Simulated scan of single mutants.
Amino acid sequence: MTKLQDKVIIITGGAGGIGSGMAKAMAKEGAIVTIVDLNREAGETMEKELQAISPKSMFLQANLMERDQLPKIIDTVVEKYGKLDVLVNNAHASKQVTIEEITQADLDLSFGTGFYPTFYLMQAALPHLKETKGNIINFASGAGIQGHETQAAYAAAKEAIRGISRVAANEWGRYGINVNIISPLADSPGVQAWAKAQPEYYEAVRSKIPLGRFGNVEEDIGRVAVFLASDDSQYITGQTIMVDGGSLMLH
């Protein structure tokens, strides 16, 4: 399979969960994938797994909350491979509390790991994506679209990401750059831990998914990411793609 043959791709939060699923799916399509993550041990393990599929792939350790590190991520990849084709902004951390309990630190965590890295990496990547007529894939969440309780910091950052993605789609379409958003519902490690901790709540949520299950990080979420990173999606931009088994159907 070669939908992404020799495309150079950056995925933040790529050492585990949805990020690792996308990385494997893309590598299997011939992509050269750089995963960016704070967790060195998990990143090095995933690097070995990716290199067995796509030998030029690599892991970069970075703290996305350190803003001066963000342009260096883009520079390192372009210096090594000579170009950048796709930027995937997947990383995000947040704390679940009600609006009345939320603190500045909670907001700073969510925006500092999600919105700001997405924004500044897009900005740094732009000159290189102009050259390749590349793609950007950002991440939203049903938590923001529906307004899930205790998710204020996360929802706010995710909706801000959707906002800048639509603006970028309008501003950068003239350069042949596509900017799209995935809103996933996946059987990630976090969801698996939740299933063990609150099995009844988990089952109640699962039973309401029209397709009856949480998505597989590689086969379901990863394959959609492959499509959005490929030439097959060249006439799609500014869209939020709900990869959630039908849980939320946008009007």
Rank of each mutant, 00 (worst) to 15 (best):
E200Y: 00
G147N: 11
M46C: 05
V205G: 00
K56W: 02
K24M: 14
A125G: 12
E79F: 00
M46Y: 10
S94F: 13
R223M: 03
V77E: 04
K28G: 08
S183I: 07
A169F: 08
Q192S: 03
A15H: 05
L228F: 06
V224S: 02
L87H: 09
E49F: 09
W172A: 00
S165P: 11
A93N: 08
L84V: 03
G163E: 13
I182D: 02
V88C: 12
G147Y: 10
I9L: 04
Q234N: 13
D68T: 10
G14N: 04
G163T: 15
Q104P: 04
V217T: 13
I10E: 01
A204K: 05
D75W: 02
I99Y: 13
K208F: 03
I182Q: 05
R206W: 00
T150I: 14
N216I: 00
Q51T: 10
I181V: 14
G30N: 03
L250V: 11
L228M: 09
S54E: 01
F115C: 11
A156V: 14
N180H: 13
F111N: 01
I32E: 04
A23I: 08
P210H: 05
K130V: 14
F115R: 08
A168I: 08
M1F: 03
I161V: 15
G43A: 06
A124N: 11
V226Q: 00
G19P: 03
V179D: 04
V8W: 01
G43P: 07
N180K: 07
S20Y: 01
A155L: 13
E171H: 12
A153D: 14
N89W: 01
M46Q: 15
N135H: 15
Q146M: 15
V179N: 05
Q239N: 09
G17H: 01
Y116E: 15
M242K: 11
A124W: 04
G246Q: 10
I99E: 06
Y154A: 12
